[in-house]
Design a protein around this nucleic acid. Sequence first.
DNA 1: AGCGGTCTTGACCATTTGATCAAGAATTAA
DNA 2: TTAATTCTTGATCAAATGGTCAAGACCGCT
Lengths: 208, 208
Amino acid sequence: MAQSKPKTPGKTRIQAINEDIILGAALEVFSAYGYRGTTVDQIAERAGMSKPNLLYYFRRKDDIYRAVLEKTLADWLAPLRGLDPEGEPLAEISRYVSAKMAMSRDNPKASRLFANEMLHGAPIIGDFLSGPMKALVDDTAQIIRAWIAKGQIAAIDPYHLIFTIWAMTQHYADFDIQIRAVLGESSDHFPNAETTIIRLIQDGLRPR
Amino acid sequence: MAQSKPKTPGKTRIQAINEDIILGAALEVFSAYGYRGTTVDQIAERAGMSKPNLLYYFRRKDDIYRAVLEKTLADWLAPLRGLDPEGEPLAEISRYVSAKMAMSRDNPKASRLFANEMLHGAPIIGDFLSGPMKALVDDTAQIIRAWIAKGQIAAIDPYHLIFTIWAMTQHYADFDIQIRAVLGESSDHFPNAETTIIRLIQDGLRPR
DNA sequence: AGCGGTCTTGACCATTTGATCAAGAATTAA
DNA sequence: TTAATTCTTGATCAAATGGTCAAGACCGCT
């Protein structure tokens, strides 16, 4: 039954625009300086508005942080979905690695935001980790286990396979500075990195 | 020519003890909350002394942070040294992985302290990264390249091999919460993790 | 014991920062 | 146009926090 007017007050045009601007600015600043390292003033400046105005949209600093975390969660999880149990295992996993690597290249700030959360004990997204994320990992592990059972890939611990893939791909976003310090500022290392990672995984999984 | 008395005033017994206590407390707190997220009071409390007393030993918060970073650098680098060019490549690399994994297990706080530094652009250890650390990586890459040239291991990009090893091993310290959320709080996952990592690397490097 | 230097801390200061408020400007719907 | 609503911000507040200081406690040496 459709309501003539939406129950939720419905966002004003200005509200929609400004909340977007704020969340963009917040991701920028939070990912660079962490929660405590970020001041509301910084976000406001980056968003091009006064601090009281920003706090008109999000009452507390904590609210901004939660909102940007939540908004980014979807993006961050996207590459982890969609392992097709019917697909060719090595191809599926390569696609998975490529997708996660693209994420590290194109949206490193989201990656760093989450890395920071984890590093400090996931005070906000703890429930998410032990809830939906654990479920997703369990499902993915199940798919991998089925492949192993059918002899399509070599036997390997599915959980640690997933963790190592996350580790390698995230690393190129989270430790960007370190990698640039070694390879040089202008280096586009992503293609080589991806090749190396996929190669390690494929060699490790190829059934003998 | 030996000096009858050391030029540096020489630390008092109490100084030596307290500086140690402070650095220990600082590692604890900085690694958990990051630089900005840590207050001098927190460190003082953990160290069991008053804030002014702590500041008697380290004049500024920044000094404490630098000191603990510097002290931990040695520990953190230790596993990265000592790849023996004359040794059997796969065995050498396995040893390397094991050492780094032990570091993640036994001293995860040091790992997290550095991860936090990197994540936020390495404002303090930036010079170290592009100096001694780059040199160390270059040397290690050279050793690996020699092994490849002699046909002892398969051809692979030495730099990305090193990065992926770092990524996988560090991950188990830095993302500890995430792993526990998935595998369960009491899980001792390090043995399986190490097996999986070494297996991936070895399969990827075995010459065909 | 007694003395000089070292160590310790309660009280305090200045700045930063998250948050509030009142008053006015802009927008919207009639 | 007009009135209600939404949006915007300068001024301000209270708490937190890095850092100082002076006064006294403690230690090591003779």
